[in-house]
Amino acid sequence: MPQTPLSVSHPAVRRGVNAGPWSLGWVLVVLAVLAFYPVVFRNFLTLGVTIVLFAGMATAWDVLGGWTGQLSLGHAVFVGIGAYTMALLVLRAGVAPWWGAMAGVGASVVVAAMWGAVTFRLRGPYFALASIAVAEMTRIVANNWASLTGGAEGVSLPSLPRFLGLDLFSRRVEFYIALVLLGLAVVAASWLQRSRFGYHLQAIREDEDAAMAVGINPTRDKVLAFLASAALTSLGGSLYGIFLGFFEPRGMFSLDLSVQLALMAYIGGVGTLFGPLVGAGLLVGGSEVLRIYFPGKSLFVYGLLIILVVLFAPDGLGTVVRRVRRV
């Protein structure tokens, strides 16, 4: 046994701690490839925006769900807060949409802090159930508090100021904004993969008691992860609001939307850099293919896909790709 200390550059050590620059490189490559999408598929921009936007929100979900291991089925709350805060400030106060989105982030962070502080004492399925309850209550309140949200009749965004000289309603502009958001989320995830804070979260996910024994304050760190996840999701929500141009509480705060974000991450693989992107591509792109080729059967196939993934690729399809590559 060599007595000299193992050097930091020793290959075993380098392999042992997820070398950061390496995965960051992959992130850039993937984003760069995606940047060509609007050029190649100019007739499918709407689809592209949807995929990239949902991939971004699913990656944001994964910060809490995958990296920290807290299954939230209420993230639509932040999508809704992002969209509504932005739209209401634009419509009622004449605020620019990007400042509106920032305000949405602020509101989401406040909500997440309260929500997390109260419910993070619950573990396992109980946290998931509580998140459903919070989201459903938010939806009902948003639906009924018409003086604030416009109620069930929804909100529409007929016009928006130009953003850096760009038309925010152009699908192309929306695509690149979504791509920036996805980039932010994936870079955040890749930072979690190697940073001190990221290791804290992963340790909490793996074993909360053992994490405490090495000096980690799980409640504080879980809340912080929740804040980050909420902030990113909220940004996605603001863009989603612009993308739709019209929205109502029933869609924006729906359980369906929350479940969808979680499913994308799970189908692609939670706690991985690109799992949520793979999941979003498959679910959104896949359901479009299904809509065209299996009219009326898309939800059925969607359900079947979930069952098959759980049975045969419980760690997500991303891991299947990895397995295939190893062979």
Binding site: A12, V13, R15, G16, V17, N18, R196, Y199, H200, Q202, A203, E206, D207, D209, A210, A211, A213, V214, G215, I216, G271
Partner: peptide, 17 residues
């Protein structure tokens, strides 16, 4: 109670930090 999905190095890094 190891952190099963982390590498050995990462298991230690958590505390080392």
């Amino acid at each position: 109670k190891p952190f099963p999905r982390l590498t050995v190095m990462e298991n230690l890094l958590v505390g080392a930090y």
